[in-house]
Design a protein around this nucleic acid. Structure first.
Lengths: 228, 228
DNA sequence: CGCTTAATTGATCAGGGTCAATCGTGGTGG
DNA sequence: CCACCACGATTGACCCTGATCAATTAAGCG
């Protein structure tokens, strides 16, 4: 990749200016790989803020990003985690409803929404790809609602491990990119409850915690049952 | 409307065969009004079932539909309510993950997915419209997650009333199309808790319950505060 | 006018939140 | 290289919100 990537190590709200746009060929598999800018965002840094202009959206090249909302009283709700090849920050309105941050160091491609929409008008492939990506996010959001609505802390945590493992295609040895706090804010629980659930699973011999972020799934069936 | 509408009063899974397709002109405002079939579904009846072929999707002409999932132990989670001009049942995979039912008597337009996708390939307007509708559903699903994740029964109920009133554009006198059970299953609560919250709001003079399904909002600001 | 179902209200209980202490781990500097 | 520090994770004790069980009231319908 010949593009000049920019880093956002020090800027609180990252600077999006870059010297070179990444004008790749319009191939069939990746119609979206046109007119994007490669950026890097370090762990914990903001990618965009609630209320800012929704004039860009992002695709994950590597790392994990979280999209979330901060409530008036300081509580945080994580809407979604995004992994490689997923897009986020693509909104209907002019202003962003949610903010986004890097869960781990991220490499992203930033697209100008206006730009892409123009391309989509002429190129059916781009248009179709956008629809697929939007629907992928929709399906995820629906999964998330299901997880939040059905009560039971253990069910939520078990469901999360399974879902995350499936998405990362490491179902036996799951690496969690995020902290307990991130998990809790995603599941609508507290860190204590998440921790307790994991400990309980370990006591029951369902999982083993190799490290705090490495979960070995010993009994996938039991975990499925727990997730109800 | 010259189309022959079909009713589904008695069939448990509604018959989708219809004698006349509704081939409207491809105008700019409603590019999707092509090749759809008008159907009626009575209150409480199923529109489609989880596990069935996802070869059609629907647009609401009148009434309210709910999209939901039944859990193994009988619990039900309502993913979304859909009102006029919204689409639902448009999925990525070949098989449906969720089921749908009529909350009130519904008039719907049924589209063949294969059909629309072919049209979308040639017609940019249809393609764009699909994307907009999908993103509208995504935005709603995100709102829903926010409502479910942030705890507090009162917050949920208050948020629901406000959101529903806004969507139906009747913010002062809100008509609830759905039962308490529907509300509860949407909010991840029990009917008792929903009922108690509403009673409390009434005691506090924030709302007045004209009938069980008619809520007069007396103090919208207070309701906003309750929704946090 | 009774019957059936939905909604409300009350009493009790448990799941998970809160507060607080401890443990563990990774990073830094003497 | 190891001691110390800081932060995240875990564990424990207690409490509160909302679920559960149960009874009553209200509303729709033949």
């Amino acid at each position: 990749m010949a593009a000049t990537a920019i880093h956002t190590d020090n800027s609180p709200t990252q600077a999006l200016k870059s010297r070179t746009a990444w004008m790749a060929n319009q191939n069939v598999k990746e119609p979206l790989q046109t007119a994007g800018i490669v950026i890097h965002v370090n762990e914990g840094r903001e990618i965009f803020a609630e209320g800012s202009d929704a004039d860009t959206f992002y695709k994950v090249v590597s790392g994990v990003a979280r999209v979330c909302k901060f409530l008036s009283d300081g509580r945080r709700q994580i809407e979604a985690f995004h992994i490689v090849d997923e897009i986020f920050g693509f909104e209907l309105g002019a202003e962003r409803i949610l903010s986004a941050e890097a869960v781990s160091d991220c490499t992203l491609i930033s697209y100008r929404r206006h730009n892409i929409e123009q391309i989509a008008q002429r190129n059916e492939l781009v248009s179709h790809q956008l629809l697929l990506l939007a629907m992928h996010n929709l399906a995820q959001a629906q999964d998330h609602s299901l997880l939040l609505g059905r009560r039971g802390a253990a069910e939520k945590v078990a469901g999360f491990i399974l879902g995350w493992g499936r998405r990362c295609q490491t179902e036996e040895m799951v690496h969690l990119a995020m902290s307990r706090q991130d998990m809790a804010d995603y599941l609508g629980l507290t860190i204590e409850t998440v921790s307790r659930s994991l400990s309980q699973f370990e006591r029951d011999g369902v999982i083993a915690l190799a490290s705090t972020r490495q979960i070995r799934v010993l009994n996938a069936d039991a975990l499925e049952d727990l997730a109800a």
